[in-house]
Nucleic acid binder design. Structure first.
Lengths: 361, 361
DNA sequence: ACGCATTTTAGAAGCGTTTCCATAGCAGGC
DNA sequence: GCCTGCTATGGAAACGCTTCTAAAATGCGT
């Protein structure tokens, strides 16, 4: 026996066939006499035998591995905080079921190449992380028949792809309604990355609520962003040099809100006294900012967990019927929004006041 | 042909043997006549043939996959920000070399079980993420002969395990020296998690520098932390109710510094006017804090990149000689430290002053 | 037309499992 | 003593590929 012990080695040592060893080691020991079982167990133990999972996968035609694919668009994991929580949820579900994860980060946008990389027999199913518009990942049906679920993108029906996501529309609706209830009527908005469905869904929810409440939308207060903090800062510059300002600016995510806040500090615009700001996502730092951010929290961990569950369901039952699961967010009120009635007019600053949502510094 | 096309299907269609197809598809086409090559290529194309990587791995006895193992101690990826950057670096190196990553998160601390999970033939080598003291991962030699490198822990020599890490000692030395140069002589310290080597290395560097400069160490100002932000807040509480305070508190990482700062805000201790604070790591938010944090930055991405490189070297050459690579950090001076000479005494507060490192707010 | 060196191609033995199916051995019923 | 029905075990094909080695086909000089 050279190299690692194999089934054959164990069989030899136990004086039986490899079938016997295989069966016993897989827990089918009721088929055998007790002393045979013992023999085999001992032999395996003594040799330090460990089944080779590759060979097993080949024979079983199942790998007990699922692929997690990052959209080539945001290939750096670091820059995709979203992925972490989701990954954690996935791991949590998979761990006790003895599934492993294969992390796949395609760098090309050629769908054929991407899918050659993904669907090569090494995984039983795939979780697509936040595919953006035009992503090669969405060409799925043309290239693969693997069970698949997407996560982090609420996809239009025509993709016929199961997906789990936070409910962008309902969460943003809730947040905007709350802001309006605080008395705000002059509301600015920083849009997310135009290739993300979430950006459009959040913006649309924003517009709908304003419409519904009869609040006019001033397009010069609606700025383009890209979900990155710098784009928040740029939006601030663009907005804050206008002659008339909104009383609140709602960013489509926390990162942009942070960039915005930073710029406010530089330009010495007091938040929330002069201008209120909201975020979206409740990223880990939102609470620890100089001005703790009012935002919406959602359970991305849960998203990952459910995604894994859906996927395993698909794998095990073969039921590949596309399903959509949306998870509700929760309003998190901190200190970055002041009630608008405290402001006599956008130009006049009330330096001191204290109510819920006001500054505590 | 039912199911996915195999080599046999392609061979049949091209009218040749599977050896021929295998060779040509692996780029050994110089062995064959040009028209044969064409035939095969076409047949493969038409059938949409994709090599099965599992079968290939079995035959080649190489999987082109490396395992990334998280210490069971910090099983939640989310809570281990360190891992993200490192993972990115690993991915960056592996990607062009057509290696994939298998993410392994053992939940047990039984080394045998852990290693059964890791070393089952499905990977060619393994990166151990930040193994802590007593981690089953460090029992490596007893259970596996896989090429391995550790990352994020500067291990004692006796583990005989290659590892890549930031240079905790030199970085902390640099930071402490800088703080002393700012005139501080009353220095507090918040220790990291006692199971991490880095915590001890950083603390030791701290103590050494103070000794070297003849600065007394006041043990009541040296608090135990665990690298989490809450432990920083607890340390603040413990420290700030003492009658005499240091002029600066150095936290063993940014997270604790943040917790500390938060608590300072609550207790209305002005930073840096009343008390200076330093961090360690330059996490992404350090810059965006209310009081931008003075800290040390190191390139964890680089750590991951080099780790992957080391590992592939081991895999390809079989040279398993343990190596240690330490990466230097860089001082990042922001606004959380004020020069100590601006303070007449810890009790007297100079409200306004401006130098590098001073407040700009 | 023959042998020899070369170029092309194919056969077949793995890789380490799983699993279907067959076969011993052995009671018991007749 | 023969068939039946167990239980306990083993043989062998299959999974889809790689690769060593052998064989067929070709070209050349003679």
């Amino acid at each position: 026996m050279r190299g690692k012990p194999t089934l054959r080695d164990v069989a030899e040592r136990a004086g039986c066939s490899i079938t016997t060893v295989s069966n016993i080691l897989q827990g089918r020991s009721h088929l055998y006499r007790e002393d045979m079982v013992h023999q085999v167990m001992r032999a395996a133990q003594e040799l330090g035998y460990r089944p080779n999972s590759i060979a097993r996968s080949l024979a079983r035609r199942r790998t007990a591995t699922i692929g997690v694919v990052l959209d080539p668009q945001h290939a750096r994991l670091t820059h995709n905080l979203y992925a972490h929580d989701v990954l954690d949820g996935i791991l949590a579900f998979l761990e006790p079921r003895d599934y492993d994860i294969r992390l796949i980060t395609p760098r090309t946008s050629d769908p054929a190449a991407v899918w050659r990389r993904i669907d090569n027999g090494s995984i039983d199913g795939v979780v697509l992380i936040a595919p953006v518009m035009g992503s090669p990942l969405l060409e799925w049906r043309h290239y693969s028949s693997l069970p698949a679920v997407a996560v982090g993108s609420t996809l239009p029906d025509e993709y016929r792809l199961s997906h789990i996501d936070i409910d962008n529309t309902s969460a943003m609706t809730m947040l905007v309604e709350w802001v309006i209830q605080q008395g705000h009527r002059a509301i600015g908005y920083i849009k997310g990355h135009p290739l993300h469905w979430s950006a459009h869904q959040r913006e649309q929810a924003f517009r709908r609520v304003l419409d519904r409440y009869g609040v006019p939308i001033r397009e010069e207060w609606v700025l383009q962003g890209d979900y990155g903090p710098e784009s928040g800062a740029r939006a601030a510059e663009q907005l804050l040099r206008q002659s008339e300002l909104p009383t609140v600016v709602m960013a489509a995510n926390d990162d942009m809100a942070i960039g915005f806040l930073q710029q406010c500090r530089t330009l010495e615009i007091a938040v929330p006294e002069r201008l209120s700001v909201t975020g979206f996502d409740d990223s880990s730092w939102a609470e620890r900012m100089g001005i703790p951010l009012t935002t919406v929290r959602h359970d991305r961990y849960q998203v990952g967990y459910l995604a894994a569950q859906q996927l395993l369901h698909q794998i095990e039952t073969g039921d590949t019927h596309p399903q959509r699961i949306l998870i509700n967010g929760a309003l998190v009120v901190r200190h970055s929004v002041a009630p608008a009635y405290a402001l006599a007019s956008p130009a006049t600053l009330q330096p001191a006041f204290s109510t819920e949502g006001g500054s505590k510094q």
